[in-house]
Design a protein around this nucleic acid. Structure first.
Length: 678
DNA sequence: ATAGGGTTAG
């Protein structure tokens, strides 16, 4: 039951000093809404398209509640000396709006805006521009637009602010439209407009448009400006045009830390992580000190390379710089700590990740999510689930990405019930409609054998992408519904989605389960011919497996010999498995010798070959292979991260089975040994 | 008396 506004309350009390005295007439409305939003929420709510209309109902709190919320807002931390009234200066209002934007405090920003609309008929473009910016910073782009459309006069600042609001909220197309329209309206873009236009191109990866803007920049002579150069490097990096990014960077007359950081990011996000780290060193050689953001980018490159040593070096440099444990400068240092946790997780050092995480000065959802991901991706799914609980008891609310990570942990534990519990929480938070969340749910249900649930989630998804189609196709393929998987493959394409490498893995798996050898060949060839996808090792393994199981050993071997793969060890191993089934000793020996030559530390080919000999009654040969194996130092399955319990035991076996299904099926003793390694 | 460049979890 909401508390109502108390008309007898004295407005000079601390609890409402932020609000102007309201007239008796408007008090009669008895709610904050009517008190401060006043008669007509015109430009805000009513001009918006109906489905995106702002829900003003949630501002229907009592005045005390709103004032308390305002005072207690931790990030904004208002310390207003005077209440807002008709005499509050525009400078004060502007600074309030700025702080609301920085803190992404939409609620408070709306309060200030409402105050201006109610009491400041003398508002001008200066103040209006700040309101537009506040809404843009708070991510409320429709509000930004409608305020912009009602500005008393639109100037260069207004356009630049609006363009940036669009570009930073993922509406690159609209930002570029603004760029056009401002010029039609006779306003000459300055360097800030060009930077915003480049940002818009980056956000939608519009390379051609970006080149057009670049040409206009050169025509107007803005290309020597530092911030323009930086934005150009960034734009070419985001549009995957690394050569252009390099050219711009090399030709820059001045460079600063941001230029170097932009270049490092461009390299690392386009698959040149080694070079990115070289640049990181060169930058320091050139006398620039990395800041927290530079460190984030460098750590990201280490994470992609899974280069633990380099990552630890950079961590040492962070300590050296005195950045570790610091919590000032907004989110700068916080993000850097998150990046450290993420890097250690991706590089497989859970201990380091834990250490950084436990020493963090403060933690956000992102920090918790990074730590949970680190656990879940390093075989500690149970710890991931524990952390998820602790995070919530620490008062941090999970976001969609946390849920995705936790669902992944459930998936690898095959913990269907826990997953369903989390599914319920997701529905409660209203995240079920998010593509990434839906996809993680389909994965969970698919891997846990609950195809019906996977279908339901997929059917309810309002938006799908290639990844969610892939998840659904995989769910069918791995639950004995190969035909349905192949049908979905067709539907997916008629829905306008292009299949990728992952799609074809599931398609081939579907062919394998339904025994469609010829179809598998056709799909395999169509990867290259119709979709310009080059089959990877996994696809080749899959096809060899299908041919091998069908007894087409000749075809399989010929195919391997014609494959332009870098390493064929796994493919030969696959053929070796097929030779085991069909008792083809000669071919088996050939395949084994290839496999051993290519991956001498793997025990699997020895085991398989020995079994082939044994099955053919050639016990001496079998023993000889085993002796060779036992006398050489072969790679053990790395299970030091594994806890020993039933589920994990199974997951170790699954891993072994992935290397070769035969190890488990035909050599149970071997498998048992593997599982006993702690 | 406003605007502007580099970062994060499938």
């Amino acid at each position: 039951m909401p508390k109502l506004f108390n008309p007898t309350m004295e407005c000079s009390t601390a609890s409402c000093r932020l609000f102007p005295r309201v007239s008796a007439r408007s008090r009669r409305g008895s709610s904050l809404k009517s008190a401060i939003i006043a008669q007509k929420p015109s430009t805000l709510a009513e001009d918006l398209p109906s489905k995106k209309r702002t829900n003003w109902g949630k501002y229907d709190n009592s005045l005390e509640q709103a004032a308390a919320a305002w005072r207690n807002h931790k990030t904004v931390n208002w310390e207003l000396e005077k209440p807002l009234d008709r005499t509050t200066s525009f400078a004060t209002l502007a600074s309030l709006l700025k702080r609301c934007g920085q803190a992404k405090a939409l609620y408070h920003g709306r309060l200030v805006h409402a105050h201006i609309r109610r009491y400041r008929y003398d508002w001008n473009t200066f103040l209006g521009n700040w309101v537009v910016k506040m809404y843009g910073d708070c991510g409320s782009i429709e509000d930004a637009r409608s305020v912009f459309d009602n500005l008393p006069k639109i100037n260069l600042y207004s356009w630049n602010i609006l363009m940036n609001a669009y570009a930073q909220n993922g509406c690159g197309r609209e930002a570029l439209e603004c760029f056009q329209r401002m010029q039609c309206d006779g306003i000459r873009p300055d360097q800030v407009s060009f930077v915003a236009a480049l940002d818009a191109c980056s956000s939608i990866a519009a390379l051609e448009k970006g080149q057009e803007v670049h040409a206009a920049i050169v025509r107007r002579g803005y290309d020597r400006q530092l911030i323009v150069g930086n934005a150009l490097v960034n734009m070419y990096g985001k549009c995957a045009s690394l050569g252009d990014a390099r050219n711009v960077f090399n030709q820059m007359v001045n460079r600063d830390v941001i230029s170097w950081t932009a270049m490092i990011t461009a390299l690392s996000q386009n698959g040149h992580c080694d070079e990115a780290l070289d640049f990181f060193d060169q930058m320091q050689g050139a006398g620039f000190k990395p800041n927290p953001i530079t460190f984030v980018c460098a750590l990201d490159a280490c994470a992609s390379l899974a280069d633990l040593k380099k990552g630890q070096e950079i961590h040492a440099a962070i300590v050296e710089a005195g950045y570790e444990g610091r919590a000032d400068m907004g989110n700068g240092f916080l993000n850097m700590h998150n990046a450290l946790v993420n890097m250690y997780g991706k590089c497989g050092s859970l201990e380091d990740a834990r250490r950084v995480f436990s020493r963090m000065p403060s933690r956000t959802v992102a920090s918790w999510t990074a730590m949970i991901t680190a656990c879940s991706q390093n075989g500690h799914s149970k710890e991931a689930l524990c952390l998820f609980n602790r995070m919530q008891s620490d008062g941090i609310k999970p976001d969609q990405i946390t849920f995705v990570t936790v669902l992944d942990a459930c998936t690898s534990l095959a913990a269907l019930e826990k997953g369903q519990e989390i599914h319920a929480a997701i529905v409660e938070c209203g995240y079920e409609e998010q593509v990434v969340v839906g996809t993680a749910l389909i994965n969970l249900y698919g891997k846990c054998g609950s195809l019906e649930d996977a279908r339901n989630v997929f059917g309810r998804m309002p938006v799908r992408d290639v990844v969610s189609w892939n998840a659904m196709i995989a769910a069918c393929a791995h639950n004995g519904h190969g035909m349905e998987a192949l049908d979905l493959f067709d539907y997916m394409q008629s829905d306008g989605f292009k299949p990728n490498h992952v799609t074809f893995l599931s398609v081939l798996a579907a062919c394998s389960h339904t025994g469609r050898v010829d179809a598998a060949r056709r799909y395999f060839n169509s990867m290259r011919e119709d979709h310009s996808l080059i089959p990877k090792v996994e696809h080749n393994v899959c096809l060899i497996d299908i041919l091998g199981r069908a007894g087409l050993l000749d075809d399989a071997e010929n195919l391997i010999n014609s494959m332009p793969l870098e390493s064929k060890a796994r493919v030969w191993l696959c053929l070796l498995g097929a030779c085991r089934i069909y008792g083809d000793v000669e071919r088996g020996a050939r395949a084994a010798s290839h496999a051993i030559k290519l991956d001498p530390e793997n025990a699997a080919p020895y085991v398989l070959l020995s079994n082939i000999y044994a099955a053919a009654g050639r016990y001496d040969d079998a023993q000889q292979v085993r002796d060779i194996m036992n006398n050489s130092r072969l790679k053990k399955i790395d299970s030091c991260h594994m806890e020993v319990d039933r589920i994990v035991r199974e997951s170790v076996l699954r891993e072994v089975a992935q290397v070769d299904k035969m190890v488990y099926v035909f050599v149970p003793k071997e498998a048992a040994q593997v599982a006993d390694i702690d």
